[in-house]
Design a protein around this nucleic acid. Structure first.
Length: 154
DNA sequence: GCCAACGTTGGC
DNA sequence: GCCAACGTTGGC
């Protein structure tokens, strides 16, 4: 069982959007970074858990948790010429990009802000906090997971 | 295979 | 809006 952190811009697709989706489930697609792709394709498993993080917004924060409900599969948006994520170099036989399906698990009563995360020495090694990190899909250790859950009141 | 130029990310 | 950091592209 693995733990992850997934970034999304709330202006594009926020945690509330996920909560309002059918069965609180959505396809996590449009990832166009090879390192992130490798995680989605090779490491994501059903029942893995992830933090849902709001980036590029007024108060960057972890809003809650989500559950992986479908392991990595070829990202359909890469095959769709009308999609902003279309990639003509990807095809069905040799898919270049991958998606997973996620379902909202828990909504934090109080989001755990980036500023709060930075305050804790126990989290200093988090990939999210590493200087210049831009990866939208990052692994989280079980220790980090439990620590942040306790910050969220658990 | 190097690396400059470019586009993007994302906190502030 | 700024800008540092990063990934990708493409010429050589």
């Amino acid at each position: 069982m693995n733990y992850w952190l997934l970034k999304s811009e709330p202006d594009t697709f926020g945690f509330t959007d996920l909560l309002m989706s059918p069965r609180k489930t959505t396809r996590w697609d449009g990832v166009r970074n090879y390192q992130a792709r490798n995680f989605l394709r090779d490491k994501f498993r059903p029942d893995d858990l992830a933090f849902f993080y709001h980036s590029s917004c007024k108060t960057p924060a972890i809003m809650g948790t989500i559950k992986i409900v479908r392991a990595g599969y070829p990202d359909p948006t890469a095959f769709d010429p009308t999609s902003p994520y279309y990639d003509p170099k990807s095809n069905m036989n040799e898919p270049r990009w991958f998606a997973v399906d996620v379902q909202a698990a828990e909504t934090f009563a109080t989001p755990v802000t980036l500023a709060e995360l930075k305050r804790h020495d126990a989290l200093r090694d988090m990939l999210l906090l590493r200087r210049g990190n831009r990866l939208s899909v990052t692994p989280v250790t079980v220790k980090q997971w439990r620590y942040i859950m306790s910050l969220a009141g658990h």
